[in-house]
């Protein structure tokens, strides 16, 4: 294949993967702490509209990204109060959060439909960006693309090589043991949940600021749920989330290219189904492939915890 086709293709895989990577990396930390937040889709949507609104009003991309992250974190704080402080059912509360985010973002975004913004700028790195092939492929992206990869690395380092990461994993594996040696389980889980919310908000922000720089109701189109599936796919390991996100980015791009290519053998609706069907297939392969992946799930995932005081 010609390089002039291949490079843009791979670049679009990277952009399609970035929102998934941001949200899934955040959710991975949440789940490693033993909390299942099914509200990723809702947090992404509210992150998307808040980032878009901030960009539209202030024109500052930095403020826009911060707004997206903050919006996701605020929503996750709401989830935290219910699930951590009030020990509510995590599955039901996560669903409620997604429904809440759908409604809230649609309401907030009603006045922003159809408005254009300046898309997130590509950061040129002197020397590197002008290299042939590698330049456009690796060094001509916007800040959120770099941030998504950096955060994945940072999370991997934090979980496996720091004391804080060890404690967080301990809280997820055995909340009662962590509590009995003096760790504040609830507080640590709050930190994890807030981090997950901010990352989901950034994932949403990427969609409305860079991927398709506009606001459309429900524009995440299930990406929050795919991010949740990616965490399972990755067996709760950061670097495998990276691989998974790029794989799904590839599926998305493949489907878009097939739709745009003109000679359509399959109706477009069937191509649009692809990422969702791929998610099901991948989940099935992961769950049936080996017992290892099931053992990888944090032991306390989804179980409510309340210290008796």
């Amino acid at each position: 294949m010609n390089l002039s086709i291949l490079v843009p293709l791979l670049v679009s895989v990277i952009t399609a993967a970035t929102p998934l990577l941001l949200a899934a990396t955040g959710e991975l930390v949440v789940e490693r702490a033993g909390v299942l937040n099914l509200g990723v889709e809702g947090m992404m949507l509210v992150g998307a509209i808040c980032a878009f609104a901030a960009m539209f009003i202030t024109g500052s991309p930095i403020l826009a990204m911060l707004a997206g992250a903050a919006a996701g974190a605020v929503l996750s704080a709401l989830f935290g109060v219910l699930v951590l402080t009030l020990a509510s059912n995590q599955v039901a509360t996560g669903l409620a959060l997604t429904l809440f985010g759908l409604g809230l973002s649609a309401l907030m975004g009603a006045n922003f439909v159809g408005h254009p913004i300046v898309p997130l700028a590509k950061l040129a790195i002197p020397g590197l960006s002008s290299l042939p092939v590698i330049g456009p492929l690796l060094f001509s992206h916007d800040a959120l693309v770099y941030l998504s990869v950096l955060m994945t690395g940072a999370v991997g380092w934090f979980l496996n090589h720091t004391r804080g990461g060890l404690i967080l994993r301990g809280v997820g594996e055995s909340d009662t043991s962590a509590h009995s040696i003096g760790h504040d389980v609830i507080r640590i889980r709050y930190y994890a949940v807030l981090f997950g919310g901010a990352m989901a908000g950034l994932g949403g922000a990427y969609l409305s600021l860079a991927y398709t720089p506009m606001w459309v109701e429900g524009m995440t189109a299930g990406r929050g749920w795919i991010a949740l599936a990616l965490v399972v796919f990755a067996a709760w390991r950061p670097w495998r989330v990276l691989a998974g996100a790029y794989l799904f980015g590839g599926v998305t791009v493949l489907q878009l290219y097939a739709q745009g290519s003109g000679f359509v053998l399959v109706p477009t609706q069937f191509l649009t189904m692809l990422p969702y069907l791929a998610t099901i297939v991948v989940l099935t392969l992961m769950s049936s492939g080996s017992v290892r992946s099931r053992l990888a799930a944090p032991a306390c995932l989804g179980k409510p915890f309340r210290p008796v005081s």
């Binding site: 409620a96 959060l97 429904l99 759908l102 409604g103 809230l104 649609a106 309401l107």
Partner: peptide
């Protein structure tokens, strides 16, 4: 969308 929001708040 206000309906969805009110419904989710109820939950």
């Amino acid at each position: 969308a206000a309906t969805g929001l009110v419904q989710a708040m109820l939950l």
